[in-house]
Amino acid sequence: MKKNFLLLLTFLALGFGLTAQTSTPQMQQTAGEESDVFSPVGRWTLGVDAGLVFNTLDAGTAYMKNYTYMPRLSFSYGFNLRYQPYKWLALRTGLYYIPKDYVLMQVDSITINDKIEVFARGEMAQNGYLNVPFMADLSIGKKVRYHLFLGGYMGYWLNGSRSGGALPLMSVRDSYEYSEPYTFDKSRDNRFDAGLTYGLGISIPCSKRVGIDVNMHWYYGLTDLQKRLSRQHNPQYNTSFLLLVGATYTL
């Protein structure tokens, strides 16, 4: 709840910030200037973008000591489509391939026959998702426009792979390495993906119809990666930050 409260404050602050910006004298001129520049109002805009995604798996570890989920950086790409009924508001959707990867590390030690043995293993989990975001795109600015995105997304867990290894542990286990596709288990894996998206962005016009976008999106998963199999359940959620750079074309 504390995290959510901070989140709320951030957005409130952001909201007031935007209000302050919109009240500046320069912003009052927008109606007059629209006749001088190409206006996207009432038009469709197509865009492609690509960039980095930084994903975290949120899951409890309780007594699994030294068992850590670490975020992982990957590459995401996709296209977007937006319709702009008003200058300050557009409706935006798209299709994105988003790797929601993470790394699992376990480093531990035990004493066997008065000898300390280090036990270490690591696994890189790569999970490819197709996500379709639906966002309200609120924007301000004269030529360079500043965007606030709010909405949600739906998607599908498309594919996955697991690679990793472990150090040997006396006679208990040999060292091993592996790299293999992830085998989905219908009774365990929830491949439907949905959640909230919000973010910030800047769009820079290059010509009347062409522009450059730099966006930062936050995909906050609300669907558990696993189905509930037991009365005791440890839900797992993805949270992804995307930094995307792309180009747009207004039809």
Binding site: M1, K3, N4, F5, L7, L8, F11, L12, L14, G15, F16, L18, T19, T22, W88, L89, A136, L138, I140, L148, L150, L196, Y198, Y220, L222
Partner: peptide, 17 residues
């Protein structure tokens, strides 16, 4: 715009719970 931002923020606050 202010209303939308506030409403959206409140919406997100509720949804993230």
């Amino acid at each position: 715009l202010v209303k939308i931002v506030l409403f959206s923020s409140l919406f997100l606050f509720i949804m993230t719970s």
